[in-house]
Each structure stands twice: as C-alpha cells, then as structure tokens.
C-alpha cells in the first residue's frame, strides 16, 4: 500500500547569525492511511518543524532543505506548484497548533476568518467560490461539528472574546473545513487547562474515528500520545530514535533515550518514587555531537556511538536507531 505520507532521509537546517543548525538529520517516516501516529520528544527536538515541513510551512530562507524528500499521496511536496500546494494545505493535510491564543487573527471575527478559509478551499479545489452567506452557513455547521454552542452567534465574535478551549475548537473546525485526509496536531492541548485538555482530546479522537482521519499528533506529553495514538515515534535532536506500536514502546522501550523518557514520567501510584531525569543537556544543534546525537547523555554509550551514526534497524518488532538496541531491553 502506498503510504499517505512518506518522509525519506529528510534533512533540514536553519541558517542563522551563528551558523547553520541542522535541526532535522535524516528523518525516515511513513504513515499509512488511517494510522494514528504520535511524535514525542523534548522541546527543540524538531518535531514541530517536521510537522510544518509536511505542509511546506517552513520559511525558506532561513530554512534550507539539505536532502531527502517528503511525499504526500505519492506527490513530492517540494515539487508542488501553487495550485497543488493550495490543495495540499487544508485538503490533504490540515493543521492545528499549540497555542490557540495566537493562531487566530485578532482583528477579524471568527466568521470572517472561517469564510475566508472555506472560500480558499473552494478555489484550491477548482470549484467556483461559494458566496459569503453560503460559506457562513458551512462555517456554522463546522462549529456545530466541534460541539460549540450557538454557532451562529459565535461567528460574529472575535478571538479575544473566546476562552482557550473554544478557540482551539474553532481552529479544529477550520482544520476540518477542507475535508482533510490527514490531521497534524502540534501540541494541541499544551496551552489548555487540564479539564479542557481532556475535552479537546476526546473531540480529536472522535473526529479521527468518525471521519477516518489519519492523525499525526505531536506532543511532549506521553499521556496525551498514549491516549490517542496506536503508534509512537520518538525523536531526539532531529533524529528518529525509535518507532513502535504504542503498547510495545511503553512496555519494552529499546532505545536508551525512550527508556529515560518513560522513567521521567511521575508515577501517581507510587508517590515516594523519585522521578529519574536524563542527565546532561539537549545538544547544541549548531555543533551537534558526532555519531549518535544521544551518546553524550547515554548510559550505554561505547566508543562506536561517538564515531558512527546508528541507522534505524528492525529490532524486536519495531524500528530503533541504536548500536546496542539488542542489549537495552
């Protein structure tokens, strides 16, 4: 089966004052239609920039693709012309973002923003653009679909008049407006209150189930990933270090970094249990460590780790990038 999303050897750098930072160093990731994939990793590991790359949203410059490819439905994203790109955005891949406070335009009403997006999709798909009242009716339907009360009144409100949870629902409704095949959710609940988090997660799970969406969920929160995703991809400093079924990964992590990450989750059942952190710091991407990027912090590091970059290998029913994956269980 052709994967819906196929990322191969994707390398991305940012050129800045201090030099070139290689933020993504050879990402390999294929997602099949209907999969629910979580990407987990620390802040700065490149997961958001990877998500944005899928819809070609990284500004170039300062960004620069050093190699590899991203294909969506078999089409090379970086070779797309304006028309294909417009179709990809919103219709192929729809995105929701971390902070609903800043991702809505503060000076336009919810209605006019949604109408704009709905009409943009009409144009991208070669239909005649529907009139504003028709687009408005559609916007109200979408707001109802994300369980927002009184959608008609909501359309005339402005972002600052809405709570964080409501705004995130509005953004989800906008994401749905193009009938996307894949939903990319970049830390969708991080900026929300815990109770609202649960509601939004339930909504996403429900939409994924009822609309047959493929989900790519990015989070640093293993709990959120575990709740929504059947497959988990662990990233560290711009590389994929482990890629496995959620159950397998949580039960028997193979990569030393994944094990460190799981050990750092506080256990409420054992309050006396001390959370183990991972010693050391996230590497400086302007001058990343040679070989395996995790080796300076790795408890299992051997000289080979500093010399040779480990590729993803099939070990124990998953893909893992570690020279000592067999021993790490």
């Amino acid at each position: 089966m052709t994967p819906l999303l196929d990322i191969r050897g994707y390398r991305l750098a940012f050129d800045g004052f201090e030099g070139r930072a290689e933020v993504l160093d050879g990402i390999d990731l294929a997602v099949q239609p209907g999969e629910t994939v979580g990407i987990v990793g620390e802040t700065g590991c490149g997961k958001s920039v990877l998500a944005r790359s899928i819809a070609r949203l990284v500004e170039m410059p300062p960004g620069r693709v050093l190699g590899g490819s991203i294909a969506f439905e078999g089409q090379d994203v970086f070779a797309m012309d304006g028309r294909a790109l417009a179709r990809l955005r919103g219709h192929g891949v729809a995105m929701i973002f971390q902070d609903p406070m800043t991702y809505l335009n503060p000076v336009f009403s919810i209605g006019s923003q949604m109408v704009d997006v709905i009409r943009a999709h009409d144009r991208a798909e070669g239909r005649s653009m529907r009139a504003r009242p028709a687009a408005r009716t559609r916007a109200a339907e979408l707001l109802a679909a994300v369980r927002l009360p009184e959608p008609d009144r909501l359309l005339d409100r402005y972002p600052h008049e809405l709570s964080g949870g409501m705004r995130q629902r509005v953004l989800i409704a906008m994401a749905l407006s193009g009938e996307p095949r894949m939903l990319v959710a970049d830390e969708p609940t991080t900026a929300l209150d815990v109770t609202i988090q649960a509601q939004v997660l339930r909504l996403i799970a429900e939409l994924v189930a009822t609309r047959g969406l493929t989900l790519l969920l990015i989070s640093h929160d293993l709990g959120v990933i575990g709740a929504l995703c059947r497959r988990v991809v662990v990233m560290y400093a711009g590389t994929v270090v482990e890629d496995a079924d959620a159950g397998l990964l949580f039960d028997r992590p193979r990569h030393p970094y994944t094990r460190g990450l799981l050990a750092a989750v506080p256990d409420l059942a054992r309050p006396d249990h001390r959370v183990a952190g991972i010693p050391g710091h996230i590497p400086n991407l302007l001058a990343p460590p040679g070989g395996c990027r995790f080796h300076p912090r790795c408890p299992l590091a051997i000289p080979r780790c500093a010399a040779e970059k480990p590729g993803l290998r099939d070990v124990d029913g998953r893909r893992v990038a570690c020279h000592r994956a067999e021993e790490a269980a």
């Binding site: 944005r52 819809a55 949203l57 500004e59 417009a86 179709r87 955005r89 919103g90 219709h91 729809a94 995105m95 973002f97 902070d99 800043t102 991702y103 809505l104 335009n105 503060p106 923003q113 704009d116 997006v117 943009a120 999709h121 144009r123 991208a124 953004l171 906008m174 994401a175 407006s177 193009g178």
Partner: peptide, 18 residues
Amino acid sequence: LSSDYIVAARAHGVSRLR
C-alpha cells in the same frame, strides 16, 4: 507576517495575496 495566525492562515490554504 511572521506571527502565528499568519502561519495558521497559510496552513489553511488561504492565498498569499489575500
């Protein structure tokens, strides 16, 4: 142009001119 809501508008497929 570098703010979040512009990124969101681009992600939703709104044209560059608009």
